[in-house]
Design a protein around this nucleic acid. Structure first.
Lengths: 205, 205
DNA sequence: GTCTGCATGTAACTGGTTACATGATTAT
DNA sequence: ATAATCATGTAACCAGTTACATGCAGAC
């Protein structure tokens, strides 16, 4: 006999990401969508369509309570709150181990067959990534200084700080890698350039 | 008017991951599946069902040629080869920039609301990850020593080496993070333990 | 007048996962 | 006997993306 609740066993993780966001404070779908664009969005992105769809299901499963707020001059909104069942579900879910998901990054696919790609284009893409990683690192460092500099006692903020530290580690690693990758590719591009120059000189001689 | 080829513009990346694998050598779906379990599988996983489905589409798009090999004592097999159109498509695809995909790791979701989870269970999951990252690092180091130690000249192997270096960086970062995370969580778990002991002592006094 | 913000959705499609299926050969 | 290896698929489902839709308020 399966468990009495309406939850399926496997991964099913956007649902929990939403629940987790709502444990901080009750929110509307719109606010949740913005959250998936910033804070939790650093590692989990979701479009508003997905958020609204999932909210329906979570309410149907009995994990959320909803309250409609009638507004004037603005569209009405529905505020969702995690209830006791939702919290129990979250704790239960947290016990199941989950594997590291694969990176599934197109850029790595290009690296995997460097002889089949447009080298200059891929080089430019790595340079772009470098800029992005530096910006992300700077952002994380600002957040760290502003909100996680002193001693931290509560569990909630400890988790967030650990997440932030992970982010800092990842970005620093990525920056270092981008820099060596660019240097390596430049050697190859330089070789190609020099070969081109020689060919042209021979042709004109 | 859309481009004359049958390719859609957006991500569509398993297709290219398969093409890239087949540029190394022609393979059957079965061999490809095994490749997605090991080498390219380090950053892109795909089950055999997905591989066979995609192979059909790639052949229909005219990027692959296929040849059936009749065998005795074993099931027949189909060997797929990337043709000129496929190679052109790959090069074209390599020019389009792609964003870093979100990590979408359940473990990070748990960190995000550490006050709502089973702390001891999450600690155990991080410990498990640490073991996994160490094993992966050791594997990468063996591959580096065995196949990428000397000077490398060809572009293909340069790309693979860069990928490997990225892997090394990622694993080392992950290991360092897991260790600090475990230390941090142990402080909290220790606190909880001590509090429990005190409660029991008071009750028995 | 055009754009951004607030607030919500439907529909169609693509990509990834799970379950189920077949059937011979070789190794333990 | 039992499991693993070779080799290929179908079907259903879940999750993520893209496109399309509505409508008011306030800023520029």
């Amino acid at each position: 006999m399966p468990a009495a609740n309406g939850a399926k066993c496997p991964a099913m993780a956007l649902a929990e990401a939403i629940l987790v966001c709502l444990t901080e404070r009750p929110m509307t779908g719109y606010e949740l969508t913005k959250t998936f664009d910033t804070s939790i969005g650093f590692f989990w992105r979701a479009a508003h369509q997905q958020v609204y769809r999932e909210l329906q299901q979570l309410r149907a499963s009995g994990f959320l309570d909803s309250e409609e707020v009638i507004q004037t001059g603005k569209p009405n909104k529905t505020i969702y709150t995690v209830n006791a069942r939702g919290r129990r579900h979250l704790k239960e879910w947290s016990r199941a181990a989950t594997e590291r998901p694969p990176a599934r990054d197109n850029l790595y696919v290009k690296l995997y067959a460097l002889d089949c790609v447009d080298l200059a284009a891929v080089r430019a893409q790595i340079a772009e990534r470098l800029v992005m990683h530096k910006a992300r690192l700077a952002l994380y460092e600002r957040i760290e200084a502003k909100r996680f500099s002193g001693r931290i006692n509560d569990l909630r903020r400890t988790g967030l700080k650990l997440g932030l530290q992970l982010g800092l580690t990842v970005e620093r690693g990525a920056i270092a890698w981008c820099e060596t990758a660019l240097a390596t590719l430049d050697q190859h591009l330089g070789k190609a350039l020099r070969a081109g120059r020689e060919r042209r000189q021979k042709a004109s001689a």
